[in-house]
Design a protein around this nucleic acid. Sequence first.
DNA 1: GTATCATTGTGTCATAATGACTCAATGAAG
DNA 2: CTTCATTGAGTCATTATGACACAATGATAC
Lengths: 260, 260
Amino acid sequence: MATKGGKGKGREKERMKSLVRSIDVNMAEVREKYMPGVSIDTVIFSFHDDELKVLLIRYGDIPFYCLPGGFIEKTEELDDAALRILKERSGIGNIYLEQFYTTGAVNRSQGHMMGEWFQELAKDRDVKNWFDQRFISVCYYALIDEANVELLSEEFVTEMKWVDVKKLPKLYLDHALIVKKAIERLQIDLDQKLVGFNLLNETFTMGELQKLYEAVYQKAFDRTNFQRKMLSMNILERLEKKYTGKAYKAPYLYRFISKV
Amino acid sequence: MATKGGKGKGREKERMKSLVRSIDVNMAEVREKYMPGVSIDTVIFSFHDDELKVLLIRYGDIPFYCLPGGFIEKTEELDDAALRILKERSGIGNIYLEQFYTTGAVNRSQGHMMGEWFQELAKDRDVKNWFDQRFISVCYYALIDEANVELLSEEFVTEMKWVDVKKLPKLYLDHALIVKKAIERLQIDLDQKLVGFNLLNETFTMGELQKLYEAVYQKAFDRTNFQRKMLSMNILERLEKKYTGKAYKAPYLYRFISKV
DNA sequence: GTATCATTGTGTCATAATGACTCAATGAAG
DNA sequence: CTTCATTGAGTCATTATGACACAATGATAC
């Protein structure tokens, strides 16, 4: 996906603090600033064209995709770090975000030459030792509305795109496993915590809501029973009808009412 | 609870590898061996006298209790580290063990003088810097049968006991929060994964099973409906009656059949 | 205007699950 | 033999669920 320009100096400044920028500063500063051996990865879901998608990025010429991730400042809360990283990567904040898994495979950093790749990107600065560390990664997932997001890619990010979870390319290390775990967690949370808020527009039709559920659970539901169940939960407010211009009955629009 | 003696040289050797022993070896070796800034804490549940209990330990003269915890070797998988630490603390292995949360509050190590306490225990070795690190702790929970466990306390462990989750004393840092999160997770898992296996004897009565559920969910269930639900799941095998010597009808004994 | 058609909203029906009960059976003590 | 706490099983009303049927609707084709 093509990189879109930032909107102002504020945003540019934020970008300066990011993971990838960090390899451009003095390594001593990085070691001073960040927790060693611990990282954060985020699985950012969106829902578009009836597909559940995750945000993937690629650095430099590295031939595989990564989940947006970063490091934890020594004086920063875990949740805050995840929010900051998410903000830096996708440009948005104020989002539903949940920790769901911590991965720490010993070989996470082996066989992938991440150190070499970033060393190449960073040129004469010594970053290899940093990236060759074994990282224990605390994983969060987030849901965003693809339509409301302006993707801001960073200096060393050569690609950034939404990918259907059913068509994942080769991913960095165990990131495919992380996505799998995130979907499992999303399935549990979708019903219980009504996290669908962020994956749909403010208003939506019952059919759209059902397609979201079907994308997340990767199975079909009976249309009428689905509608009955959703309505019986008393979390939807029925609005006016939506005239689509299509040759069939106009569906009602709904909105979540339990924002509280 | 009084410390019970180990059974042999093998067990003694295992104890040598533990967290607390580690402060007795050269700090350079500790820094070489373990991941910096990352720890593991375990919430070990047992069920006895109708109470859900957690295992707490106390080091030296430190005036508050801790969850059994330890550090992760640089070449060790996270799950393996948790198993090892659990083995070292409680003496048992081969147990249901699940990661459920990672905590990393910045002030986890502040205001508690953990560095000072351990420095005192370790005498002339420099351990303060290690224990004054900010630790991000990956938390696991485990279920064990209190009756089958021989508690082995270690050199610097002055106390080790089972405590009713409803009567927790002052705990180290955010360990009370960790216990709370563990119970929440246990409530979710108990039904779905039938983890009750390890909290009861091989055979048990329906009343005992109900009391376990009531202790975990901290609410009462209707006796007859509970029995109906359990029996309808087809996971229990009815055995002979249990003659308790009490002045009432003898209940049946049951056993889980879905060990597969 | 009228017919057509995909889609939507509502209703039916059988079955399963659940919560609140009743009631007989039982095992030991007095 | 009576008493009594406890246990196992059953009843009944209510709610939830899965599989359908069917009418309503909004645009298009004629």
